[in-house]
C-alpha cells in the first residue's frame, strides 16, 4: 500500500514538473516582456540577464512621449467598437435566416469566404478605397474588418440560433408580435451567450489585425499594431522601450479576453480560430 502511494506521488511529481515545463515554454515570452519593459537602457537585454535590477518607468514614458501612441490607442478602440456593433447588426439577422432555412451550399460559401488570403483582397481594396475616399478613414477600416467578421459570426451563430425552438417564435407570433419584434425581443436575448462569444473573439481579431490597417490606414487612423511596427523600426535595438510598446499594445486585448475567458474558450474550441 505504501509503495502504491509513493508511486502515485512520484507520478504526480513527474506530471507537475512536465506541466511546469510546458507553462514555461508558452508563458516565458510574456514574463520576459514584462520584466524587460521595466529595465533601464543598461540592463534591458543584457547578458546574463538580471530582471530585477534597477526598475524604471522610463520605457513607458518614452512610448507615451512618442505622442502617436495615445492617438493610435484611440483609433484602435474606435475601429474595434464600431466593427463589433456593425457586425452584430449585419450578421445576426443573416445568421438567423440561414439557420431557419439551412442549405448546404451556404455553409460551403461561408467556409470559402474564410479561406481567401487577406493580401489578395487588399490589392483591389486599396485601389477601390482610394477612389471612393475610404482610404485612411474609420469607415474603411471597419469595412475591411467586417470581411472576416461577417462569415465568422454567421458560422458561429448558426448553432446558437438552431437551438432556439421554433415553437417559442410561433407562440410570440400568435400573441400578435411581428416577426421583427419576435426576433429582437425574443430570439436575440436567447442567443446572448453566442453574442458574448462573438464579441470576445471579434475584439481579439479586430484589435490584433495588422495587414489591413498597414495598407488602408494612413496618418489619421493608424492603429496600435501598425504603431508598434513603426516604433520597432525607429528603436532598432533599444529593448526596453520596444518591450514597453509591445506590452502596452497587447495589454487591452489580454484584459478584455481574460474577463470573458469562458466564452473565449468555447468559441476557440468551436470555431478553431479564424
Amino acid at each position: 500500500m505504501r509503495g502504491f502511494i509513493l508511486k502515485r506521488n512520484i507520478a504526480w511529481f513527474v506530471f507537475y514538473t512536465a506541466l511546469g515545463g510546458i507553462v514555461l515554454i508558452f508563458f516565458f515570452p510574456f514574463l520576459w516582456v514584462m520584466f524587460t519593459s521595466f529595465q533601464d537602457a543598461e540592463n534591458a537585454g543584457a547578458i546574463p540577464p538580471d530582471f530585477l535590477a534597477s526598475p524604471t518607468l522610463d520605457n513607458f514614458r518614452s512610448v507615451f512621449e512618442e505622442g502617436e501612441f495615445l492617438t493610435c490607442l484611440w483609433n484602435s478602440t474606435v475601429v474595434v467598437v464600431l466593427t463589433l456593433v456593425a457586425n452584430l447588426i449585419i450578421s445576426l439577422p443573416a445568421a438567423y435566416i440561414i439557420a431557419r432555412n439551412r442549405q448546404g451550399w451556404m455553409m460551403f460559401l461561408i467556409l470559402f469566404l474564410q479561406m481567401a488570403p487577406w493580401i489578395t483582397l487588399l490589392l483591389p481594396w486599396y485601389i477601390i478605397f482610394k477612389k471612393l475616399g475610404l482610404y485612411d478613414t474609420y469607415f474603411g477600416l471597419v469595412l475591411s474588418d467586417l470581411t472576416f467578421m461577417i462569415p465568422f459570426t454567421i458560422w458561429l451563430m448558426l448553432g446558437f440560433f438552431e437551438d432556439v425552438p421554433v415553437e417559442v417564435e410561433e407562440a410570440a407570433w400568435l400573441d400578435g408580435c411581428s416577426r421583427m419584434g419576435t426576433f429582437v425581443r425574443i430570439v436575440v436575448p436567447l442567443v446572448k451567450g453566442g453574442i458574448i462569444t462573438i464579441t470576445t473573439l471579434g475584439f481579439m481579431f479586430c484589435w490584433n489585425i495588422f495587414i489591413f490597417p498597414l495598407v488602408l490606414a494612413g496618418y489619421d487612423t493608424k492603429t496600435l499594431p501598425v504603431f508598434v511596427y513603426g516604433f520597432m523600426a525607429d528603436n532598432q535595438l533599444d529593448f526596453g522601450p520596444l518591450a514597453a510598446a509591445a506590452l502596452l499594445t497587447m495589454l487591452p486585448v489580454i484584459i478584455f479576453v481574460l474577463i470573458n475567458q469562458k466564452h473565449f474558450r468555447q468559441g476557440i474550441a468551436f470555431g478553431g480560430g479564424k
Binding site: 507553462v23 490584433n208 520596444l242 475567458q261
Partner: peptide, 25 residues
Amino acid sequence: FRMMLMFPIIATPVAMSLVWSMLMN
C-alpha cells in the same frame, strides 16, 4: 494552467513577433 496557455493566442501577433525577434537576436 488553461488561462496561462491562452496567452499566446490572445496577444497581438505583431507585438509578440517583435518580442520573439528580440529574443532571437
